[in-house]
Design a protein around this nucleic acid. Structure first.
Length: 301
DNA sequence: CGCCAGGGCTCAG
DNA sequence: CTGAGCCATGGC
């Protein structure tokens, strides 16, 4: 076992691991105390979170475990995890600069004050794509369960510290899984979407490389080559995997916020409403603002 | 029973 | 391009 720690004080703007990993951005982390998404217990702020990474590329998964305690990000893993954590949790993002770019109206101030240190994640493309295809009309907790079921059923296992972990399945494996097998895991009508999108990735007919590097609007369009991906899911994958921090996914919570706080941004179509709220949220880092608002509103209700 | 959950697909107009 | 209907599943 390797281990290490990163001083939170070295990170511009700090970090809030719990808010980052329990805000419905990444569905590949698990709280080791089994209380993911439950109300903050006394130890909630320093719980261990674990994930198995790398399995979706066909190699043996590596396990990474992290917790935030006493001003440190402590980790234990099957490999050196310093740089991996910096990448996955975007620890190099300059949060004060990002907050400067986000307007400080009533809602945004409340949301960023409540979860200061929450960071937008940077997940690998395929697991992120599948997660958000599964997210359609689903609660966050169930999206998480569905990804766990996919990994348990089709992912490579790895034992670490006496515990068994499952990496995310490869595109080939999910493409080979029949629609019926996926439905059996509770994916419902999303099952054929996942299967067909996995096929596209496995065959190379549509991949992340077709999207990476495009201007935001073109990238959102290109994402819809995948099955089960419309404007909203496209925005999620663009932000949480491909680094488009200006993307503002219009989900039910944000639409409610628009109705209550920004009615002038309601323009009828997704594209125009998204454009308006992106400007309202300061443009460049509007997705960061959206992520804070989503987590804030969802936890407040 | 009904409603809702981080929507997308298909088919009419 | 826009809108309705449909799509599974589980919690409340």
């Amino acid at each position: 076992m390797e281990s290490g720690s990163i001083p939170v004080g070295d990170l511009s703007g700090g970090v809030d691991v719990q808010a980052t990993l329990e805000s419905g951005q990444s569905f590949r982390w698990h709280r080791e105390d089994g209380r993911m998404y439950e109300a903050d217990g006394p130890s909630g702020g320093s719980a261990w979170y674990a994930t198995a990474v790398g399995g979706h590329t066909g190699g043996d998964p590596e396990v990474v475990r992290v917790r935030q305690r006493d001003g440190l990000l402590e980790w234990e893993a099957t490999t050196d995890a310093d740089r991996l954590l910096v990448e996955r949790l975007r620890l190099d993002d300059d949060l004060p600069a990002i907050f400067d770019a986000i307007p400080d109206d009533e809602l945004l101030s409340a949301a960023t004050d409540a979860y200061r240190g929450l960071r937008v994640v940077n997940d690998p493309f395929f697991p992120c794509l599948v997660s958000f295809i599964c997210s359609a009309q689903m609660r966050v907790e169930r999206i998480h369960e569905m990804q766990a079921a996919l990994a348990r059923e089709f992912g490579e296992t790895v034992v670490f510290d006496g515990e068994t972990y499952h990496g995310f399945p490869t595109p080939e494996r999910l493409a080979r899984a029949g629609e019926d097998e996926l439905r059996a895991l509770g994916l419902g009508y999303r099952a054929p979407y996942v299967q067909r999108s996995a096929e596209l990735v496995a065959s190379g007919e549509a991949t992340a490389d077709d999207v990476r590097g495009l201007d935001y609007e073109d990238a959102r369009e290109a994402m819809q080559a995948f099955v089960g991906v419309g404007d909203k899911v496209a925005d999620c994958v663009l932000m949480f995997s491909l680094g488009y921090l200006e993307a503002v996914p219009l989900d039910t919570w944000i639409r409610t916020a628009i109705g209550e706080y920004y009615p002038h941004c309601e323009r009828g179509s997704y594209a125009e409403t998204s454009d308006a709220i992106r400007a309202e949220f300061g443009g460049e880092y509007a997705g960061y603002a959206q992520t804070y608002v989503f987590h804030y509103l969802r936890n407040r209700a």
